[in-house]
Amino acid sequence: MVISFLSALLILAGLVFFLGAGVGILRFPDFFSRMHAAGKGDTLSTLLIIAGFALYQMRDLGDSEASVSAVLVALKMLVIIAFLYIASATSTSALAEAGWEDGNDPVIAPKHENRLAGPPESRTAAADLNRNSTHDSQP
């Protein structure tokens, strides 16, 4: 009973964070800000909901014959969670980089120095690095 309540709590928290991500992806002004909503809200809400269901799977560990498959399912959910931990942030960064290369310009807030062109101290050094690093993507 307590475990069901806890897992329901986790799932509801995940839904709330997903609501935040959905509103964010609609309202934010440019592509990069939307990546914040998509990258973070999506990750944590998925983690929380799947963790809630994994916790619910563990509810009747006392039964002898049902417990092995229940533990296996919970372990597989943990594998999904571990995979999402790595994959979600990686795909967020990869998509942000692709958006940058594709020519999306971020909206820069007024009163902020426009540092899109390069690091503040050495723009030419960054340009050199950039020119070198454009070839590294080929296998």
Binding site: L95, A98, E101, D105, N130
Partner: peptide, 28 residues
Amino acid sequence: AAARYLRHKGRRGIVLASTSEESVCERA
């Protein structure tokens, strides 16, 4: 895969200093 495909389509990153700054200024 989509990210890899699209970043080779646009390829803007090489131009750092001059052009990108102008386009941002007119949008911001």
